[in-house]
Write a protein that binds this DNA or RNA. Structure first.
Lengths: 341, 341
DNA sequence: CTGTTAGCGCGTTCAA
DNA sequence: TTGAACGCGCTAACAG
């Protein structure tokens, strides 16, 4: 990672130029911008007019250095283009913007190593806070964050022991609740499909929740009813076909990730299978599209946008010096029962 | 927009501390980081080891100030959570990351005023380049950019006169091509549905393309066959129903935006209408899902990710001092013919 | 209410 | 190959 830096804009107008042009001292200009009420109406107007006239653009980077502050927050998500994460990013951006903070965004590509590198880079940019979707980090990453002393909020799962703070829902509880919901609707052989629990902590938690529900129901675990697949519509379809072949009596499948449920539903349509009569289908996230399919899909509704917002709000509170902020904020989830189950 | 700044991390370790600990001068540490080959193997190792040992994190913000450079690029999109734009952002992030540049991301909420404010804020952060999805800007925004002298790339449409550079496809050409394609497949009464052309430049261009195709075909414009709607699946469905009522002989609808086509298809399924026999449906962007619906949807495929990548690459070239960069890069589009038309 | 002084943590430029 | 002086553009702390 070579620091391929580059010439910044040639905006040669400095605060001092404004001061000279207005016939005041540099500090007066600085105050006109940051503490307008500490200047006389007259001086303030003079300065602001001059700023406007000569087109001065403040240099926040110099301001940050001088004041040892920062107005940039770093956020790292597994993937920028995954709509689930971009919902969270949107929530974060909305809140930060209202407070004049900026968002430095990067994606780790689901890699811990990459996340570590990004954390180092963001810390070098002197971000005033970190928003991490991951709840798992390399030891070096943890050490860097600890030393930097910046507030951190983890949003991917409601970790038992957050690095600092966590704003999320419980993946395990959500998966457990949906499994119990399906059982409650009479399904006896409930399958579970997710991304690989080996590489994905969130999938692991969801699988735990599924197993926990089975235990509560006094039902045995059946490997034929569990599948780990790669991402994508096609993967959901294939997982359904495979599972039905392995366990022909499966009567419902809970797709705990991504767009699997939609892929499976379309495959069922293609084969003329009735949903939920032939096979019931439930999804994880309440993507807009799920309420427009035929039949509409039962799923969990997770507060993705709200997570981004609350995380940002919590960060703001900490930045304002409050130390009574909660360590864990559980934003919960909702089961949306529709025609597919 | 009050600058709600906040204490940065307390990482008190400065370059000078590293120098003292290693028994060298500050400059030697600086060089070990930026020009390793200008130091003796021995000194370099000593310094790097010391850095690692005491956990020094470089302060890029101070570095930027001292060198009058920046390693941050600003990108403004209409909406962060819209998957079309997040694809572009992903492409940008991929490329920037390889060069050690960072991405400051914000969304304008489709507002020119907001875009102007963001441009000002980004310029104050001394970004080394700007990536704007919009191709329309307030005069003040244009003036600020001009004065700052930073390279700018517009990605939303292939503007005739870019501010600086444009990397995109032509909305007008794409819409024209699809309309002609539908006519070529025998459809005689082709409807057009988009976001409002009055408020959205891209929709305006697409409508132009549609009209241009009609003119080439010697067909009259028929207001009954044109609709402007709000965003969303439901809007697409409703637009289809309304249009069929207004013009019962419409045999194909080209949905030039968002997720309208999917909403319309689902509505058709719900009513048991055969697609494309009863009504043919074509979409604009090739969202993954379009190739999984039943029937699969004909659409335009636009190089969203590639636009982000190429824009970033072009920016990098300019930052490296090249001035032979093209002013307009047309990344084209593709018509994907599937079963829905 | 306004100005002065002294840095923030680095890179640049020169000299050694 | 290494180092010393100076300044980037701004803010903090104090003085008036």
């Amino acid at each position: 990672m070579t620091a391929n830096k580059s010439r910044a804009g040639g905006s040669a107008v400095r605060m001092l130029d404004v001061a000279n042009a207005a016939g005041v001292s540099l500090m007066t200009v600085s105050r006109a911008l940051r503490q307008p009420d500490k200047l006389s109406e007259e001086t303030r107007r003079l300065v602001l007019d001059t700023i406007h006239k000569i087109g001065y653009v403040p240099n926040h980077i110099a301001a940050n250095l001088a004041s040892n502050r920062s107005n940039v927050v770093g956020q790292i998500v597994p993937s920028i283009q995954n709509s689930l994460y971009s919902n969270t990013v949107q929530g974060t951006a909305d809140i930060l913007r209202q407070s004049g903070l900026h968002l430095l965004l990067a994606d780790s590509g689901y890699s811990l190593q990459e996340e570590e590198a990004l954390i180092g880079a963001f810390l070098a940019q002197r971000v005033c806070g970190l928003l991490l979707h991951n709840t798992q980090h390399t030891p070096r990453a943890v050490e860097m964050i600890r030393r930097a002393g910046v507030p951190v909020i983890e949003t991917g799962d409601l970790a038992r022991n957050p690095l600092d703070m966590a704003v999320s829902y419980s993946n395990a509880n959500a998966a457990r609740a949906m499994t119990l919901h399906l059982a409650g609707r009479g399904y006896r052989r409930i399958g579970f499909v997710s991304l690989s629990p080996r590489t994905n902590l969130r999938s692991r938690e969801r699988l735990k929740g599924y197993h926990s529900a089975l235990a509560s129901l006094d039902r045995p675990r059946d490997p034929a009813l569990v599948a780990a697949v790669e991402s994508g519509f096609g993967a959901g379809a294939q997982a359904m076909l495979d599972m039905i072949e392995r366990a022909p009596d499966v009567d419902a499948i809970f797709f705990a990730g991504d767009v699997f449920a939609i892929g499976a539903l379309f495959e069922a349509q293609r084969r003329g299978w009735k949903v939920p009569e032939r096979i019931a289908i439930a999804g994880f996230d309440d993507l807009d599209i799920l309420q427009h399919t035929v039949p509409r899909l039962t799923c969990l509704k997770l507060p993705r946008l709200e997570i981004g917002r609350r995380a940002a709000e919590l960060l703001l509170q900490r930045l304002e010096g409050r130390h009574d902020t909660p360590q864990r904020v559980d934003l919960g989830f909702e089961i949306i029962q529709r025609e597919s189950t």
